[in-house]
Amino acid sequence: MSTTYPPDRHLLRDLRLSFEHVDEHTSVAWMPVVPELAARDGSARAGALATLVDVIGGGLAARAAQPDWIATADLTLHLTGAATSGRVEARGRVAHAGRTTVVIEVGLSDDRGAPIGLATMSFARLPRRVDNPDLSDSPTTGMSSMALPSSGLQASLLDEIGVEVVDRANGTVESPVRDWSRNSLGSMQGGAVAVVIDAAAEAASAVGHAGEVVVSDLQLTYLALARVGPIRTRAEVLDARPGVVVTHVELIDTGSDDRVTTIGRVVATTSLRTA
């Protein structure tokens, strides 16, 4: 594992995200929509958008919880439109900051400013540990980006993470936990977890009577960190009708006694490009 975080080649740099911290309770972030992010229909895949949500939501929650620290409890994303070009904007706000939990709401819009979805995240508030990042000196307003001049995806997002489909019919995919997609705690970044679950549901949704569908909703509950890997998914299709597939996905860290690290409920629908 790399000693500096994030390393030069890392998910948080190569997505070329940029941020504007508007105030203590509001941030805006942008992510270029590039072909490497594309789902089956050519629009940015839900897992990629969830990564954007995770980054802006985590930043907002960490600030709202100061001097305490946070642990991500869950992330939900509902899409009603597609991001196909330019960049997607995420506008996050602190919906609630209490003594035990922080809740973030993130609105997503496309390059024309049209709303394409809504996401929420909730975080448990934890006592600060000495190894938690200190945000007290970080800027509370202004523009920022972690991208380096050389940053950018060199392959599809799935390939960068290392996702391989093991058993399409059963929605089983596998992925290592690479430095490229680790978070500051050394485990798989929450957005990368969303991408793996997105890929598992996409695989499972391809089988059945639903026709061509893409992931539209992710409802993820984080139970434990995916530290070791390889991680593997276990998927069950709960409902499959024309244009709609609902899948329950569990993410297992096979290197950590097959611990279930995340559960997800994923809805795939007919492409939202025409919505």
């Binding site: 509902h78 009603t80 439109g81 049209a114 709303p115 394409i116 979805g117 809504l118 569908v213 539209s216 024309p242 244009g243 709609v244 809805v267 629908t269 007919t270 939202l272 919505a275």
Partner: peptide, 15 residues
């Protein structure tokens, strides 16, 4: 309130 276009194959998504 509908989120964006709101309508999908599985219904209308509301905030």
């Amino acid at each position: 309130v509908p989120i964006g276009a709101g309508r999908r194959a599985d219904g209308t998504v509301m905030r």
